[in-house]
């Protein structure tokens, strides 16, 4: 493995200083152009099934209960009860006190292959002591989470304490070890500039992230096409330097099949087709799944059915 930084803040800063800037106008323009790709017929069907397999079916509300989690777990395994050709989703994503329930219900429904992702490190704000963040993560792992969605300390990032951001990610990665995949949430809506998004993406990758993730879903804007574009460029460039492919998770604001297909086009033409699988690209969503199912029915039957023909959750 190529070591790009030696773990010291000085070497991190030296590495980040060499990153090229992002021109906002140009990045927006490129993302908009890729948004005009016309995906029809067979390619649309392929994209819908791939998008379903990439969904991290998510519920992250204060009101989440056992019943709610049970419902989304059943849906995760068999998104359309009338059509067994619909693939299962990529993962179920919940708060860490519900991990055990999610794991149990997935297994009961025949979904033992579907991982449970837990949001940790004082999600969504990340404002807690390191001790709490570590315990938060340990709890999730103990309960059976095999994917950890952590948040970075945006306050530290914006005040220039980049070493601190790096160290936190590294510490959580060490706890995850081989037991869980680590997804690092940048919360791009709070980082605001694309230069920051690129920088934060590299900090996360250098610190050991398996995935970089746009947002918590609690802040807008979230996974806008240009933000995902910048992150996909980052994983591509990291791969060219190290030979290691880091995944990207777009979360927040992707509600329609059209939005999801635009994301897949970005993956295909920015990072490259190697990223077009659930191991390297995920879409964090809840409402999206039903739109994908309705579009899938339309492709099969030729007409759109109403929302009562797909299950609520």
């Amino acid at each position: 493995m190529v070591t790009l930084v030696d773990g010291s803040e000085a070497s991190l800063l030296q590495y980040l200083a060499k990153l090229s800037g992002v021109d906002k106008v140009g990045a927006d323009q490129r993302a908009a152009m890729l948004g005009t790709r016309s995906i029809k017929t067979s390619s649309k069907s392929w994209a819908i099934d791939m998008a379903i397999r990439m969904v991290d079916l998510t519920t992250l509300e204060g009101a989440d209960s056992e019943g709610k989690v049970r419902a989304i777990c059943a849906k995760a395994v068999r998104p359309d009860p009338n059509d067994f050709t619909v693939p299962s989703v990529g993962a179920v994503c919940v708060y860490n006190d519900l991990v055990k329930i999610a794991r149990k219900n997935l297994d009961l429904n025949g979904g033992s292959h579907i991982p449970v992702a837990a949001v940790t490190t004082a999600f969504p704000s990340g404002r807690a002591s390191m001790k709490v963040k570590i315990q938060d993560t340990r709890d999730a792992l103990t309960d059976g989470a095999t994917e950890i969605d952590m948040v970075i300390d945006r306050g530290a990032f914006l005040s220039g304490k980049l070493g601190l951001v790096f160290d936190e990610i590294k510490a959580i990665k060490e706890i995850c070890g081989e037991r869980a995949h680590l997804k690092v949430i940048l919360e791009t809506g709070e980082l605001v500039t694309y230069d920051n998004v690129r920088k934060a993406s590299f900090i996360a990758m250098l610190a050991g992230a398996d995935f970089i993730k746009t947002s918590t879903g609690k802040v807008t804007p979230a996974a806008t096409p240009p933000v995902v574009l910048v992150m996909l460029e980052a994983v591509r460039d990291y791969y060219l330097q190290t030979g290691i492919r880091i995944g990207v998770k777009a979360a927040g604001g992707i509600r329609t099949t059209k939005d999801a297909i635009k994301q897949l086009v970005l993956v295909n033409e920015v990072a490259g087709p190697e990223w077009l699988n659930p191991q390297l690209f995920r879409i964090g969503a809840s409402a999206l799944l039903n739109d994908l199912l309705m579009q899938r029915m339309k492709a099969d039957t030729g007409y759109y059915s109403g929302s009562n023909y797909v299950t609520l959750d």
């Binding site: 016309s38 995906i39 029809k40 017929t41 649309k44 392929w46 295909n268 490259g272 087709p273 190697e274």
Partner: peptide, 12 residues
């Protein structure tokens, strides 16, 4: 780069 599994169908 590998050939993409995501072939865009003709959209004339």
């Amino acid at each position: 780069m590998d050939k993409s599994p995501f072939e865009y169908a003709p959209a004339p």
